[in-house]
Write a protein that binds this DNA or RNA. Structure first.
Length: 365
RNA sequence: GCCUUGAUAGUGUAGUGGUUAGCACGUAGCCUUGUCGAGGCUUCGACCCGGGUUCAAAUCCCGGUCAGGGCG
């Protein structure tokens, strides 16, 4: 399932094998919650060489529904994507007020945002859904409390998430599908350590860190990854959920993280932000009006090969929405290339220098 | 030449005697990280010029300038 191929200090490369092929780690997954990547499609993913995406089991269960997806001959066929698809369990929805109704040890009750119907989901039911979706990697149902700074509720979430992980594992029947668990604990050291230890006591195909990237800031994010990863199995893939930015990705890889997903790159692309090796730029700013250079000077993406910052700026100013696709393509290509470079640097035992050079050039506000 | 209409942020406009002069786009800045609203927030920025009436004028009057329209 997972094999480490090279290491430099704590950073490592590896190969994750799923029913749809092999993926080299560390990698980044774009988010396709509803099986749609805004503005781009599976052909774009092939062109960019994106080998994994992540969707959301609970959302797909509510709409378009399992019956429909069965008629469509499965999610891979439906979206014409023949590589690895992760499905998130839907635990993240629990932080949304208009979603959650109640939660207890047995199940979670919530209201569908699509038709306001009320649903009850148990870990067993969640596994049933993910097995039926036949994604390549399923995530255990976890409980992420809304009040992320409340120690007591986080303590409770660590406990419930552990109980649920056991139930997910026991009821997981799709043997072609890998199953990852998720640890919680907010930014509290003792809770993170406890959660990581509890999860590591169970045998999963991969181990995720959840509950981060929700405004805790870089310092707490980095510290929390340290707390957790110390007690996570070394020979299994480690997935930092919801992250994110190039600086967080490279920092986390240096700690031993293998997998990332985030809507940051695509969402920010639609808000005029493009990644460059020197930091983020805002293309709507007038300083780019006569900047006839590519978004990033070293990027080989479709957008950078064919268009300039000035053109994107111009499209923004004349309210021509096609720029959003161009910037989206750039940002996910940028991240994908970034991860490829990181993998290469680890294999060549050059990662430490690569990271140092990157941080030196990458300006963070 | 005569008549007429108009002139309010960079642009387009609201405003019939007392408004912190409103709005949209724009400028500048900030936010967004496992449900991505093709977003959200903040800032900057104006009454054409000169005189008059009035306690008080973007608002009423006179003149000028500029622009549009009509007549000759």
């Amino acid at each position: 399932m997972f094999q480490i191929t090279s290491e430099e200090k704590k950073a490592r490369t590896g190969i994750l094998k799923t029913q749809h092929g092999k993926v080299e780690t560390p990698f980044f997954m774009p988010v396709a919650t509803k099986l749609g990547l805004k503005l781009i499609n599976s052909q774009d993913l092939k062109d960019i060489k994106i080998k994994t995406i992540i969707s959301n089991a609970l959302i797909l269960y509510l709409n378009p529904g399992l019956e429909f997806l069965e008629k469509a001959k499965g999610i891979h066929k439906f979206i014409n994507y023949n590589d690895t698809i992760f499905t998130d369990s839907g635990g993240f929805q629990m932080i949304s007020d208009n979603f959650l109704i109640s939660i207890n040890k047995k199940h979670v009750r919530f209201r569908s945002p699509f038709d306001s119907s009320i649903h009850k989901i148990t870990p067993e039911k969640n596994m049933e859904i993910q097995s039926a979706l036949n994604s390549d990697v399923a995530m255990c149902l976890d409980y992420m409390p809304r009040f992320e700074n409340n120690y007591e509720s986080l303590k409770e979430s660590v406990k419930i998430t552990y109980e649920w992980a056991k139930r997910c594992k026991d009821s997981h029947e799709n043997k072609k599908q890998l199953l990852f668990c998720i640890s919680q604990g907010g930014t509290f050291k003792d809770l993170r350590e406890k959660s990581a230890k509890l999860m590591s006591s169970l045998d999963f195909d991969g181990y995720a860190i959840g509950g981060l990237g929700i405004g805790e800031g870089s310092d707490l994010l980095n510290k929390t990854v340290d707390y957790s990863i110390k007690y996570m199995p070394k020979d299994k893939p480690r997935y930092l959920m919801g992250i994110g930015t190039p600086q967080h990705i490279i920092e986390s890889i240096s700690k031993g993280i293998d997998i990332f997903d985030s809507c940051y790159a695509t969402k920010h692309a639609r808000h005029e932000m493009a990644f460059t090796l020197k930091g983020e730029i805002r293309l709507g700013k007038s300083k780019y009006k006569e900047d006839f250079t590519p978004l990033d000077e070293n990027c080989n993406c479709f957008t950078c090969k064919n268009y300039t910052r000035a053109y994107i700026h111009y499209l923004i100013k004349i309210n021509e929405p096609s720029w959003k696709r161009l910037v989206t393509i750039h940002n996910i290509t940028f991240l994908n290339n970034f991860l490829t470079q990181i993998r290469t640097s680890i294999k060549e035992n050059n990662f430490t220098k690569f990271k140092k050079d990157f941080i030196k050039n990458y300006k963070v506000k």
